[in-house]
């Protein structure tokens, strides 16, 4: 299997505080990998280590076939894109001037500026000064900045946490398109819908420890009770276990035309997170 990120026994200590403890995982080439955890669980710290903004106290970290000692090289830097709280734009300059700068720094052709502005739906704001943009628009320019050099791997640290659903959905569509074109995406979030919708696989991070790692579908199946939840026209809600001896009961409900809705138990990632960690994803 072709892994874009390989992390083994990663630990990060700040003074007396351990932020990351024995974290091990791989991110496969071409997937959208989600790191889920409440605030303070170590998501940003993990991204910083993977991008070379911070160094692990212990453990092996390998990204794009390079170990962490090479994260300062321009070869590494030109292959990754980052959007995080630490991303910022030059407020006094225009959208175009900002992107032009990064185009040149990454040695990308200048025509990419207009291509990427179209991708993030900002071509009309081309000559607008950054300080005049709304939060959602700024975030889209930041995304454009992170993608302008067509990185193989993109890190997104809670990219939509400050955005309204409309702006978030727009970013989600952009990320899906990007992924279809072959880009590997590493995203952190505490938004379970975002993770369910976007991610091929998710990992739960709680107090710096990794607790589950699988596809959202597999996790939902694993933590499902597999019972049928039935709502009848008379307003009753029944939970019927998925056992052969209950087949008669369900058959009877169907024959009597009583069923308004029938579903299998399918917990959300948020509910699963609560079950696994005893903690709400969003407090």
């Amino acid at each position: 299997m072709d892994n874009t990120i390989e992390v083994k026994g990663m630990r990060k200590v700040f003074g007396r505080k351990t932020a990351i403890e024995q974290v091990t995982f791989n991110v496969e080439k071409g997937e959208i990998f989600g790191l889920l955890g409440p605030s303070g669980s170590g998501k940003t710290t993990t991204i910083k280590i993977l991008t070379g903004e911070s160094t692990q106290t212990d453990g092996d970290v390998n990204v794009l076939g390079m170990d962490s000692t090479r994260f300062g090289s321009s070869d590494f830097k030109s292959k990754i894109g980052i959007l995080s709280d630490n991303s910022a734009l030059y407020e006094r300059l225009t959208v175009h001037d900002n992107l032009k700068l990064f185009c040149k720094l990454y040695n990308a052709p200048l025509k990419e500026v207009d291509v990427i502005l179209k991708e993030v739906n900002m071509e009309d704001e081309r000559t607008t000064t950054i300080s005049k943009l709304s939060k959602g628009m700024k975030q889209r320019v930041l995304l454009a900045k992170a993608l302008i050099h067509k990185p193989k791997l993109v890190f997104l640290d809670e990219p939509t946490s400050a955005l309204d659903p409309g702006n978030a959905a727009q970013i989600h569509r952009g990320l899906q398109k990007l992924n279809e074109a072959g880009t590997t995406i590493f995203i952190t979030t505490h938004n379970m819908e975002e993770a369910t919708e976007l991610c091929d696989r998710v990992a739960f991070l709680n107090n710096g420890r990794l607790q589950e790692l699988d596809s959202p579908g597999a996790l939902r199946y694993k933590y499902s009770t597999h019972a049928f939840h039935v709502e009848t026209f008379s307003g009753k809600r029944l939970v019927i276990d998925n056992e052969p001896e209950n087949a008669g009961q369900i058959k009877e409900l169907i024959e009597n035309g009583e069923i308004k809705a029938i579903n299998t138990d399918n917990p959300t990632l948020g509910q699963i997170f609560l079950k696994v960690t005893g903690k709400e994803l969003v407090s």
Binding site: T51, S74, K77, S87, A88, L89, Y90, F102, L105
Partner: peptide, 14 residues
């Protein structure tokens, strides 16, 4: 202060 330095440092610019 505006955090733009980080963006420059993360780019291939030395």
């Amino acid at each position: 202060e505006k955090k733009t330095l980080r963006g420059l440092m993360l780019s291939p610019a030395s």
